[in-house]
């Protein structure tokens, strides 16, 4: 186990930000801290880096107490959400900063520093741009300078705070793939904070989901996606549709239709059923299931988006195969049944 976080709690002005969080990373692992804004993920990252002190709990790295060390002795590379590059220094000077800051005895020679800077610039694919100031670089390039600067101190652990947060969608996707490659090459234990579930699921070896300062679930992307521990996780990891149901004899009864339940089965009684927008069958006319009227059919896309107004109130937004959707028209009466549901 590389990093071990034990029962961390933190309160800002009487508002609890982190509640008794425990988690760990394996050596060389790529871990995502995923959660909506205000879930405490950035605070947790800053506690690991040493920029915040927790009220309670412990942080250990390879069995050494990390909290006892000041920030500058932790050897943790941190890439800030807005990069925090030194604006009056060139990219190369930014990258060299950590090496120059070492005590004289440990400081590499000027030549070594220059070589290392060139090597890192090349690693982050910014060869020849070392003389540029941050204001002369694009967002994606600044991001990579910040990463190279963090890597220059040869950290034991790399922390990334919303690494793609300030970039546009196309650059995000490119950098995401590139970052994954880089991680595979360096093998550095990495924790990154994100509120983008797609990013977390695509990049991370494991995902830790945070909600209101507490750990909601932790597992591989596959586990958290297919075995969500709570309605929150299910809802956060993808679009979801929910409606009231009645649990009876191991199935969810929704408007007269019995629907199989996946995941944990709750006790009989009233509950809320959840499914994804693509988990519905739609048949024309009336039958067991949710009676509805089609509001709109949108066919532009790999699948169709069909909006229905439920007779019982509320609306459902579904994703249906194009051939099914082509048979539907606005104001058609239909019956909607989820194929399977999760119930919490």
């Amino acid at each position: 186990m590389a990093l071990k976080i034990e029962n961390i709690s933190k309160t800002f002005d009487a508002t609890p930000v982190l509640r008794d969080i425990s988690l760990f990373t394996e050596d060389g692992e790529f871990l995502a801290l995923l959660g909506p804004s205000g879930s405490g993920k950035t605070t947790l990252l800053r506690i690991i880096a040493g920029l915040e002190q927790p009220d309670a709990g412990a942080v250990r790295f390879r069995d050494k107490d990390l909290l006892a060390k000041p920030v500058r002795e932790r050897r943790i590379g941190l890439v800030f959400q807005h990069y925090a590059l030194f604006r009056h220094m060139t990219a190369a000077q930014n990258i060299a900063f950590g090496m120059n800051a070492k005590p004289r005895k440990l400081r590499p020679s000027r030549r070594e520093i220059r070589d290392k800077v060139a090597e890192l610039l090349s690693l982050v694919q910014l060869d020849g741009l070392g003389g540029r100031y941050p204001s002369q670089l694009s967002g994606g390039q600044r991001q990579r300078v910040a990463l190279a600067r963090a890597l220059a101190i040869e950290p034991d652990l790399l922390l990334l705070d919303e690494p793609f947060g300030a970039l546009d969608a196309k650059v995000r996707r490119e950098l995401r793939r590139w970052l994954r490659d880089l991680h595979e090459r360096t093998g550095l234990t990495t924790i990154f904070v994100t509120h983008d579930q797609e990013e977390a699921l695509e990049l991370a070896d494991r995902v830790a989901l945070l909600r209101e300062g507490a750990l909601e679930q932790m597992g591989t992307p596959e586990e958290v996606y297919h075995e969500p521990a709570s309605a929150f996780v299910f809802d956060f990891l993808g679009d979801s549709v929910s409606f009231p149901c009645e649990i009876k004899g191991g199935v969810a009864v929704i408007a007269g239709a019995g629907v199989p339940i996946i995941g944990p089965h709750p006790n009989d009684g009233a509950a809320t059923a959840y499914t994804r927008p693509n988990g519905f069958d739609v048949s024309p006319g009336d039958g067991p299931g949710l009676a509805a009227r089609v509001r709109s059919v949108l066919l532009a896309g790999p699948d169709a988006r069909v909006d229905c107004v439920l007779d019982g109130g509320g609306a459902i937004e579904m994703r249906l195969p194009l051939d099914v959707a082509r048979k539907l028209a606005p104001r058609d009466r239909v019956t909607v049944t989820p194929r399977t549901v999760r119930v919490w």
Partner: peptide, 13 residues
Amino acid sequence: KDEEYAAATLGAS
């Protein structure tokens, strides 16, 4: 304060 924080994580006094 981010630049100061960054400097601290990079080992600067």
